[in-house]
Simulated assay, not measured.
Amino acid sequence: MLVLHETETAEALKWDELTNAIERMFRSHCVTPVRHHHEVEVPGEAAATLLLMPAWVPGDYIGIKLLSVFPDNHLRGLPAIYGSYLLSSGKTGKMLAVVDGGELTARRTAATSALAAGYLAREDASQLLVVGTGRLSLNLIQAHSTIRPIKSVRIWGRNPANAEKTAADAREMGFDATACTDLEAATREADIISCATLSNEPLVHGAWLKPGAHLDLIGAFKPTMRESDDEAVRRATIFVDTREGAMSEAGDILQPLKAGIIRETDIKADLFDLAAGRHRGRTANHEITLFKSVGAALEDLAGAILAYEAVTARFKSET
């Protein structure tokens, strides 16, 4: 059985290949049961979340991700997300690989956002704003830069020191990146705003979005969590990764639905529709688009298969 740790997983998941693999999986006959989503008490701290996400392609592969999210881990200098992905044969059930779940999740999440941006962001989008300084921030910069001609990156975080550190890391990767403290000003200038936080309150206001902006919301993954306000969904054309996920977990969608700000019919398409060509995505340069992602098990399966096949192919070529 193959065991891929964090570095090996990252090396096996090249951005363009991963984005393409996820797009193909959205076009496939992948089976994705509703994921298990459990709240876990942590005495004296914010509650954690335990996620179990199964998916399979009949006769091909079966996979399940076990993931934990501990929001207060930043107080200990630890990542918020830990987990593992178990990949098995869809013909025999034989265990094939254990893939680092944290790295897989971070990379497939960023790649899915980039996939959506390929349909929804303006083709000339060059100014990227990343809201949040966690593990995903650098991945989002890299992934979006494979899809659009990103020339400059602004990074905002609640802790300015963390934003400065993330910007420095991005510059080491060759990006023109700077930290910012004025979120409103940075949002008003950005072509793509990518939010990856664990916020329970809106951070990005719809009034700040310029014509043609693309708002990418990926951090809040519970009905009680939110990264955008009512004006953002009111002004934008709304897209989601999966309708089922959005209608059960996405606070950025569910809260304005409950308040009567939007209707379910205002969700124009999900990634199944976009990948299959049932919706063209962005229709005008001045249009404001919003993509809400809560994560889908088929994205993990696509990444795990890609990593497994890439590493086994390399082993075969070396022997």
Rank of each mutant, 00 (worst) to 15 (best):
residue 117 A to Y: 03
residue 141 I to H: 04
residue 74 H to S: 09
residue 306 L to I: 10
residue 7 T to W: 15
residue 178 T to L: 14
residue 116 A to N: 02
residue 42 V to K: 02
residue 48 A to T: 03
residue 165 K to Y: 13
residue 275 A to I: 03
residue 272 F to E: 13
residue 197 T to M: 09
residue 211 P to F: 03
residue 90 G to R: 04
residue 116 A to P: 10
residue 301 L to H: 04
residue 90 G to F: 04
residue 71 P to V: 11
residue 278 R to T: 13
residue 81 I to E: 07
residue 273 D to A: 06
residue 122 R to E: 09
residue 192 I to C: 07
residue 201 E to L: 11
residue 267 I to S: 03
residue 74 H to M: 04
residue 239 F to Y: 15
residue 73 N to F: 08
residue 28 S to K: 00
residue 168 A to T: 04
residue 153 V to P: 02
residue 311 V to D: 09
residue 264 E to Q: 11
residue 313 A to M: 10
residue 219 G to L: 11
residue 228 S to A: 15
residue 11 E to K: 12
residue 172 E to Q: 08
residue 181 T to Q: 10
residue 72 D to L: 15
residue 283 T to I: 13
residue 300 D to V: 07
residue 171 R to P: 00
residue 186 A to G: 07
residue 262 I to T: 02
residue 74 H to A: 08
residue 15 W to D: 00
residue 28 S to T: 00
residue 256 P to D: 06
residue 221 F to A: 01
residue 12 A to F: 14
residue 13 L to Y: 04
residue 31 V to C: 04
residue 77 G to I: 02
residue 226 R to C: 13
residue 1 M to G: 11
residue 210 K to G: 06
residue 71 P to W: 09
residue 14 K to H: 13
residue 288 I to G: 08
residue 86 L to N: 15
residue 313 A to S: 14
residue 231 E to W: 11
residue 226 R to H: 13
residue 106 A to T: 10
residue 272 F to L: 14
residue 251 G to E: 02
residue 36 H to V: 14
residue 188 R to P: 06
